[in-house]
Design a protein around this nucleic acid. Structure first.
Lengths: 201, 201
DNA sequence: GCAGCTGTCTTGACAGTGTCAAGTTTTTCC
DNA sequence: GGAAAAACTTGACACTGTCAAGACAGCTGC
């Protein structure tokens, strides 16, 4: 096997790990996210994910151990992107409401990730990578909401803010809100957010 | 059929439908709730539910059509009890916060029902019985939260209150809150609820 | 009081599922 | 260039939801 072949491969799939498929791990996560987006997390089939990625039905197990392992990887990726989004919103505005809006926006734009992230029975909660990513999100959220109030072991203001935005996002993507809210979530969130007593007076 | 027969039957099995098993429909719903409480909604197996109720594996299909049908019945029952709980809280106190506390309490005490009620991909959303029960809950919730603000097509105050309590309940039962909150949810909800600007000034 | 019928449930079968053990192929390492 | 490791495939297993067909009980009409 010549060095050229490797080089060509590396140029074709410019990702961290490389092997036969190129980056099957990546491809499987993407396929899983796609499938969850279409049919929801409960109806997800490992074999369908494998077929979507063009590999045999047992290939996912090699990378993720089992179904929950694959979903754990999706959740970890979700928490990482989530932390990025929240941090970006805070850095850009320094405003709690903007972080809340980013929270809701993330849930809408990354619905598949979001649905898995907060469904503990589907994933391996003890996964170290998941923990790391989750901690990042928690920190980002705390920075946005907790900055208003002094830090504490458990911060009621942060919990209030979290409950509020999480409930709004969850009810929204589950289809519990009227069409006008779905059509313009940002405006609705701004209107509804006025009833939260945080970051003012 | 004579009127007397009905009366006697009604005393033995005081439920809507009756047949061989006594009330298999009821038993299957109970078994499903039990199973969901133990393993979560995703791992629920129709055959396991049937075994738990002591009937053949295909018996549930006769009463509920399919798996989603069984879960729909659970959700409908959940929404009915939910409406009862919220109405009772409002009638007893006339206080929005008490309705919120009842919301959280219901989620904790009826975790299996609650988890299914807000997971649309698991149930038949077009089921008329579900719709009826859901409307009852919506009305009860609106009575508790919407009473504060004037009625409208879409009431921001009601949506805010709903988002807040729903998020709190959801994050709590998903294990995202610190132990102190889990140990005394009522106290935590009262503390956190102060950050919601509803029903005051 | 009995034939027929409707509703309740069982049996058996089917394709599809997750997981595991064993094999095959490719890459890496020295 | 050969050995070892990694990446995947193949085949099997028990289990799942769903469907068609049949068995059984209870009620209806006479």
């Amino acid at each position: 096997m010549s060095f050229d072949t490797v080089k060509i491969r590396a140029r074709v799939v410019p990702v961290t790990d490389r092997y036969h498929h190129g980056d099957l791990r990546r491809a499987l996560i993407d396929a899983a996210v796609e499938a969850v987006g279409e049919t929801g997390p409960s109806a997800l089939s490992l074999r369908a994910v494998a077929k979507r990625a063009g590999v045999s039905h047992a290939a996912p197990a090699h990378h993720f151990g089992d179904k929950a392992g694959l979903l754990t990887a999706v959740a970890a990726e979700g928490f990482d992107r989530f932390a990025d989004a929240l941090d970006a919103a805070w850095d850009a505005t320094g405003d709690f409401k903007a972080v809340g809006a980013a929270y809701v926006r993330f849930a809408i734009d990354n619905r598949a990730h979001f649905e898995i992230m907060f469904r503990p029975e589907l994933i391996h909660e003890d996964d170290p990578d998941l923990h790391r990513a989750e901690a990042r999100s928690r920190a980002a959220l705390h920075r946005g909401a907790g900055a208003v109030e002094p830090e504490a072991d458990y911060n009621p203001a942060a919990l209030a803010a979290w409950s509020f935005v999480h409930g709004f996002a969850g009810l929204l993507i589950a289809g519990n809100f009227p069409q006008s809210v779905v059509d313009d979530p940002e405006a609705a969130f701004a209107a509804v957010g006025r009833y939260l007593r945080i970051g003012e007076d």
